[in-house]
Design a protein around this nucleic acid. Structure first.
Lengths: 152, 152
DNA sequence: GTTAACAGGTTGAAACTTTAATCATCCACT
DNA sequence: AGTGGATGATTAAAGTTTCAACCTGTTAAC
């Protein structure tokens, strides 16, 4: 017995494509806004996570998980950020395999400079374009999505 | 006079991050589902657009615009798809600068094979996880986003 | 009819990401 | 204590995307 495919109906199809295209454009725009600070949205997210962590540092694996990135990718990216003096790596004393990625003062300063621009972009191109209810719906849905798909 | 930054409030912050993480996980999952067919979600979207077009072909620039990709990226990707015999390039007769990207029969067959899996993934990991209203909200918002950001 | 500006597309190199292999340490069990 | 299997992180190589330069053909002005 074969299972019949449940295709998307017209409205779902349209919504799905709007999401794909809108997301692509939004990310490109936010990336663009950050270019003046010499970083991309991916770098930005890394700096933010570090800035919020105790002692402004996080274990590499932990950081990778929070960003849903491969460890390898994070190693490369942090390598670049380290070359730019925005992040520093120190070896973890309690687990000798481990490495801390720590935000430098320069990294923190850059983040403070970039944050207003970035937030303004998120507002102007997403948050302020949606009603509060619609934006809440987005949060709800993608929270469920994350939850459902789970860790890699 | 300096403008005060309007930060995101707690709920907005949470929703924004849910969207970022959920989108990352969703795309990774869909990509993964397609790997068994030897293509990624980006290739899939290209094949779909071609399959829907008259004569199953589109001009390169047109296709690039619909996917919000750079022409260069599309050239490279179509080159790979062409090497895999899924797409064929023919020069456009009416505008000698132009090139048609055309879906081959093999490309169409692959698409028919992959589509049920892909659609099932979109449903299972997004559409069916949301209420109809919430999913409609996503369509609405990202449609506005696209509109607002406009062409590159 | 030349010429200048522009549009479609490609190219190659540089930048970035992925994949698979590797190394070191840690943990649990005997 | 010693071994085997995980875990944390990096590396090299391969694959993909971006960026800037380029070539060809079109359009429109003179």
């Amino acid at each position: 017995m074969t299972t019949e495919t449940r295709w998307l109906n017209a409205e779902q199809q349209v919504a799905w494509r709007a999401y794909l295209l809108g997301t692509a454009r939004l990310m490109a725009k936010l990336d663009d806004d950050l270019r003046q600070f010499g970083i991309g949205i991916n770098d930005y997210e890394i700096l933010v996570r570090l800035s919020e962590a105790p002692d402004r540092r996080l274990r590499m694996a932990d950081l990778a998980d929070r960003l849903h990135q491969s460890r390898s990718r994070l190693t490369h990216t942090v390598g670049r950020l380290e070359a730019g003096e925005l992040v520093r790596r120190t070896s973890c004393t309690s687990d000798k395999r481990g490495v801390w990625a720590e935000l430098t003062d320069a990294g923190f300063d850059l983040l403070e400079q970039a944050a207003p621009t970035h937030v303004a972009g998120v507002r102007a191109n997403l948050v302020d374009l949606a009603t509060a209810d619609d934006f809440a719906a987005i949060g709800r849905v993608f929270d469920t999505v994350s939850e459902h798909i789970g860790q890699r």
